[in-house]
Simulated scan of single mutants.
Amino acid sequence: MKFLHAKDTISGQEARAYATINGQVEEMFYAKKIEAKAKKTKKGIKTLNKRGTQNKATGWEGTGSLTIYYVTSLFRKMMLEYIKNGKDTYFDLQVVNEDPTSSIGKQTVIIKNVNLDEVTLAAFDVDAEVLEEEISFTFDDADILDEFGKPVLGE
């Protein structure tokens, strides 16, 4: 029976992330976790001779979250630009997963037209060893530039 070698699982620490904001590339060394999800929107359809409701995909929506260490003012400045001047910022996120121990290579995904939902403007916590912040966002497109290969299975 074939099996996946443990070495071919991807370490969460073996990643890189970049934000391209107004043409400038920002290496996101302060990111702790990024998750972007695409979810289909569906419409329930009832038809004759079928008691159950069927579902038809009618679109999709992209949502995500970004957990970062509280060490940059970049996202606060973007939010303040919207608050003060009404200028909203859309940007792209590039996430590269590449674990040198794994045989499957790397995956590079670009999340396009990211728009922030909420940003922590100020924070402190006397009990926290380190400060982190959670930023939610939406997006409307994505591409896979590099995709994982198939792992070499054990026997």
Rank of each mutant, 00 (worst) to 15 (best):
A57V: 07
M79C: 12
G105A: 07
G44W: 08
V114Y: 00
V114T: 00
Y70T: 06
V130F: 07
G64I: 00
Y90R: 11
I104S: 04
T89W: 00
S65I: 08
T63S: 09
K77W: 14
N115K: 12
K46Y: 07
S103I: 13
D92R: 08
K50D: 12
S65R: 12
W60P: 06
M79S: 10
D117N: 05
L93V: 04
D117F: 10
R76F: 13
I111W: 01
L121E: 07
R51M: 14
G105I: 07
M79Q: 09
K50T: 15
V109D: 05
V114R: 02
M79W: 08
I111M: 04
K56Q: 14
R51S: 12
G62D: 02
Y69L: 15
Y82A: 09
V126Q: 11
T53V: 12
D92W: 13
R76N: 11
K43P: 04
I111T: 00
T89P: 06
D88R: 14
N55V: 10
Y70M: 13
I104D: 01
E98D: 11
K56E: 00
A123R: 09
N85H: 14
V126W: 05
T63N: 03
P100T: 06
Q54N: 08
F91M: 04
R76S: 15
G52H: 15
K56H: 09
K43H: 10
